[in-house]
Structures are given as structure tokens and as C-alpha cells.
Nucleic acid binder design. Structure first.
Lengths: 351, 351
DNA sequence: ATGAAAGCGCTAACAT
DNA sequence: ATGTTAGCGCTTTCAT
């Protein structure tokens, strides 16, 4: 090619310079670099991929929501992928998408990627399984974040199953405050993320020998938290609720407050995520923070290891940090008195 | 190639089948498809890109934050890109990144993309300009979302400069309620998104002949809104504030409330974005909603047009819808009385 | 330390 | 309606 001619060397030598291979004299390297610069040369990735069989890119399958958790995780993934020297390709699977995760993976495979990240998948089949996951032939390593392995691939690594631990910590915080039990406002059952939190809550209660009250299921939205709150407010036994995300917690608190149940005086609420406004709503929300960046980095390190060392053993997983943020939405339970309504005092306008 | 041999046709015919080109008999098409299926064939994108000179992919440069606005826009872009039949590559520019937008664009160009989307850029240079934007040679069409054109590229199209309009609507809403003027809690001045909103606010005031009070600048966070609120609370002339995003509005409201200024009775607040919890904080927030999906779709349609018709005129821009969501954080101003503190009553715990 | 030759798997341009 | 012939711009392999 032109750069080679201009520098008076062979094509291969140019290739060596750009790939930082050894055995090029400083003088030749300089000439090549200069020629390339003058010509505005940049190497063609398609040709590289074709010749080498590697694309140096990683594909990620996400849910296509701007929810704080998934969006934060995606940003962490982008950063981790770039830090590892790969390019990132993104495909969303909207909820209700007929093709689902399998379709997204297929499209990534079509595009050509060296590895795939599946971020916080959900069940899609009516039978509670990931659509088509079994039938798809995946010939690159896969990293599943926040869910069990889903595909038969040369190497499947998982990371970020930390939600269960965080849910335990959140529940224990309420128990430690003296609450006899903790109710749970769960996310949609089809989300692995929701089920992990549910399991953590259940485990924390079981460890203290407490019965788990019936679960209320929301859809992550504040509106669903509000609806749950209206139902829960009439039950005086409810003194503590662990909500599976902050949005629902905020809706829940609003419904409780409107029903005359003060937070945290009458009912304590813990959220999940620590969204940006969590410290500024009324009352400031006690919540747990997910280590998105740490999870993404750790997962990617292991995925790239699997890509670059196909026959080596997978890298071991390590435990990410846990971060409980205690604010003002949690307090010890109210003193046990004769049943009856507390002082009902609606404080705020409705919409 | 194997598929061709197995189907007993030429390589070119296989190519025709997979590209839906005309002039293949139904019979041959069937045979080819079957052979491909049996072999688990999928076409190699690198080879396609190399031979055709097109990658069928679009790169997007984003800010790498999980803020609701940018994250929503990114999701809209992904969807739009996929709908147009392209693959999406993502590169973030973290704030403070020395390479900045130019570095991200460069890396996209390295990867090989047919077009580039720059999503909500910010100024990076200390002199208030986009770092290196001028010196970079970009030879593919560029779409800039929410900012003026930044690069000299074969075609540069912009879309989504709707923030200014939305800011006008928000400000006018407060004016219509009877407020004499409206204060503005702006986003960081380096963000075009912040400056657009500032301009819209200023224009709305100017159109009614009102003076624009001094601007308070935040950093999008609820904490910065809270800090601004403490400062504003002591000024009894402040009866209406337009915040450049909902997070800041929520922090602002908290500070006002703690200072004994009731919202909306004493001070009205309008936010920007309609984040998921906006309707469930106290009081439910009046805000404007950005048409992210519409902006992304329209922008991408025009970008793809520029990619596929290099010599044609750019498609005209169209106006996206405007959506003011009126909730309970805005009301007419309080009756003008003798100056003095209202009833100070701190209602909630601090963190 | 450098070069020559071959070929990765497609599509473009031209047959037939 | 189908086939042939060339490359696309690199990396690989093997020489030197």
C-alpha cells in the first residue's frame, strides 16, 4: 500500500510498526510513522478482522431501559470494554421483543464479535425461560451479568450476583433496628435482578427465624410502589418494607404518607440502588448501592481472559463491596400500642 | 465457499440470495438457504465490509453518565439505529477525559463506521470549545444531537435542539400562573443542553418584558439543587424557579421546604425531564418531558439519508412535540404582603 | 531486521 | 437467471 511505498519499505513492515511488533529499527519505524501521518493513513479494521479472524470488539445485550440500574451498568461496561482495548457494540432487547435475548445475540454474532456480555437478562418465554437460549449456537465466550449462565458457549462466565447479598444487608438493617419482620416490595418476577433481591430478603428473614410475609410485586415504577403502598398502609403489622428499587420505595412512601402512616416513625422503608435523588426526597431514603463499575470491570476482565486464552481455566470470581447508605427513612419500630389509627394528617397535595 | 458447493451454485449466487437481490429462481434460493442452514453458515461481516467499503454500522459518542436524559437518549438512538438496519457502536467520553469528543470520534473512525452520532456534547477545552474538533478529519456524515455542528464533515446534520423550546414553555407556565418573574437554576455552563435551557428561559422572560434575575448554576445533581435552594430561600422575591433538570428541582424543593418556604404555596418549582419518580416526590413535580425517541428517530433518519445519498440535499428538520406535565409543585404566587418570614416549620429530618 | 507470497470471505463489474 | 474474475487491505507463513 501507499504508506509502504512512501516509506520505502514493505507492506509487512508497516504492519509491524502499527502492531508494535519487535524487530523494526527505530529509523524505519520513524519513516513509516511519518509517511502514515502525511497520508492521513488509518488502518482498515475490516481487513484486519478478515485476515486475523478477530474483531477486537465485544457485544453487549441490554434491556433498552433508562432505569438507573441497567443504565449505570451499561456505562460501567462501556468503560471496562474500552479499558481492555476492545470496541463495544450494543443491541437492546426491548421487553416483549419476540426475538428476545437470542435474537440480540444472533445479531451480535452476525456482526462479528469476539465475546458477548448479557446484562441483567429477564425471562421472556411464557414458561419462564429465556427464549431460544438453548437452540442458539454461540461460538464465542459469554459473560452473563446478574443472572445464571444462559447459553452453551465455549466459555460462560458470570459476575455481579451481588444483589442477593445487598438485599440481605438491607433486610438485616431493618431487623437490627428492632422490626419483628420486614415486608418486601419486589420487582417483576421475570427479572433475575428481582428474584435475587427476593432471595436475599427471604434468606435474611430465615436466618433470624422470622416468617416471610406475603410478597407484593411491583414493576420497578414509582406508580407500582404507590399502588403497593396503598394496600400495605391499611395493615398495622407493617412496620418495615424493603423495596427492590428506589423508585418503588419513593412511590411507596408517598402512599404511606398520604394514608397517615409516617415514615420512618410508623413504617421504615429501605430502597435499592441509591438513585441520584435518593438523599433529597422526603424523607431521605435509606438504600443500598450496587457496585456497578466493580462488577463490570471484574466481569470483563474474566471475559477477555476467556477470549484471549481459550483453553485456560476461567479466572476466579471475587466479591464486590457492599454499601448500605443509611439515611432518614428507617428507624426503630413504633412502640406496640393498642391497635388503631395513628394521628392522621395528610401533609401534602395530591397530583 | 462451502455453501455454494453444497448447493451446487456459484459463490455469487449465494451472495445474491443473502442480499435479497433479484434474479434468483425460487428453486435455487431454496437450495442455497437449505445448504446454508445445514452448514450453520453466517456471512462474515468483516469480509463484507472490506469488499463493499461499508460497515453498516453507526458509532455514537456519549457522555458516559447514567443521568436520565443522556441515558434515555442513548436508548432511543440504539433503537433508531437498529430500526434503520445498522449496528451500533458506542464510545463514551467521560468528563475530564483529555482526548474528549475528538478522541472518541477518532476511535470510532478507527473502528470503521459509516456515520457518527454525537449525543449531547459538552465543552471540554478550558477556553470553552470542543477539544480538537477542528483539527480532526472526519470523512463520514455526522449527526449532532442537542448542540451546534462541531466538525467539518461531508455532511453534518443536527437535531434535537428542542430544549430551548421546552424551557420557554416551562417558564411561560410560571408566568401564566401570575409570577412576576422566574428564577433559573441552570445546569453546568459547559453543557450545551444547559445553555439551551438557559436561552429558552431568557427568551420567555424577554418576550414578556420581564428582567431576568441572576442565574444560579448547579451541576445537575440534587445536592447542587439543595445548595441553590438554601441561597434562594432567603430571598422573598423568589416565588418561581425553573430548574434545568428534575434532580436539581428535587434538591431545591427540599432546601426550600426546610427553610420554611412551602412549595408550591410560597414558591413554585418546575423541573425538566420528567424522571420516573417525578410524580411521586413531595410535592409531585411539574416538569417538561423531552421527546427523546422522536429526536433520535428523526436525527437518525436524516443521518442515514446522508450516508446513503452522499450527494443529495439533507433532509429537512421537523419539530418534535412539546410536553408540559403539570403536577403540584406549581401554583399562583402568594398574595403580596408586608415582607417578613412566613410560618417557619421544618417538617422533616435531615440526613 | 526485513520482505514476498498467499489468502481471509466477501462484493463489483462484467460476462454469458 | 447465473457464473467468472478481480480485488478490498490487511495478517500469516515462510524466506532471507
Amino acid at each position: 500500500m501507499d504508506v509502504a511505498r512512501r516509506a520505502g519499505v514493505s507492506q509487512k513492515t508497516v504492519s509491524r510498526v502499527f502492531n508494535d511488533e519487535p524487530y523494526v529499527s527505530a529509523e524505519v519505524r520513524r519513516r513509516v510513522l511519518q509517511a502514515a501521518d502525511e497520508l492521513g493513513y488509518r488502518r482498515n479494521n475490516a481487513a484486519r478482522a478478515l485476515a486475523s479472524g478477530r474483531t477486537r470488539s465485544i457485544g453487549v445485550v441490554t434491556l433498552g431501559t433508562a432505569l438507573y440500574g441497567p443504565a449505570s451498568l451499561l456505562m460501567g461496561i462501556e468503560r471496562a470494554v474500552r479499558d481492555m482495548g476492545y470496541a463495544l457494540r450494543v443491541v437492546n432487547t426491548m421487553e416483549g421483543d419476540p426475538a428476545g435475548v437470542a435474537g440480540a445475540v444472533d445479531s451480535l454474532l452476525d456482526q462479528g464479535v469476539d465475546g458477548i456480555v448479557i446484562s441483567e437478562p429477564i425471562d421472556e418465554g411464557s414458561d419462564g425461560t429465556v427464549e431460544g437460549a438453548g437452540s442458539l449456537r454461540v461460538d464465542v465466550p459469554v459473560l452473563v451479568l446478574g443472572a445464571p449462565p444462559l447459553f452453551a458457549a465455549p466459555q460462560v462466565v458470570t459476575a455481579g450476583v451481588v444483589a442477593e447479598l445487598l438485599a440481605r444487608v438491607a433486610t438485616e438493617h431493618l431487623l437490627d433496628l428492632g422490626h419483628l419482620t420486614v415486608h418486601h416490595l419486589a420487582g417483576p418476577g421475570r427479572w433475575y435482578a428481582a428474584r435475587d433481591r427476593l432471595e436475599g430478603w427471604r434468606a435474611a428473614l430465615a436466618a433470624r427465624g422470622r416468617d416471610a410475609p406475603p410478597v407484593v410485586e411491583g414493576d420497578w415504577s414509582a406508580a407500582s410502589g404507590y399502588a403497593a403502598g396503598r394496600a400495605l398502609a391499611s395493615d398495622d403489622d407493617v412496620t418495615a418494607v424493603f423495596a427492590a428499587n428506589d423508585d418503588m420505595a419513593i412511590g411507596l412512601i408517598r402512599a404511606l404518607t398520604e394514608a397517615g402512616r409516617r415514615v420512618p416513625d410508623d413504617v421504615s422503608v429501605v430502597g435499592f440502588d441509591d438513585i441520584p435523588v435518593a438523599g433529597y426526597v422526603t424523607p431521605p431514603l435509606t438504600t443500598v448501592r450496587q457496585p456497578f463499575d466493580a462488577v463490570a470491570q471484574e466481569g470483563l476482565k474474566r471475559l477477555v481472559h476467556a477470549i484471549e486464552n481459550p483453553n485456560a481455566d476461567p479466572l476466579p470470581a471475587s466479591d464486590p463491596p457492599v454499601d448500605l447508605v443509611v439515611r432518614a427513612s428507617t428507624a426503630p419500630p413504633p412502640p406496640r400500642t393498642t391497635p388503631g389509627m395513628g394521628d392522621v394528617r395528610p401533609e401534602h397535595d395530591l397530583t
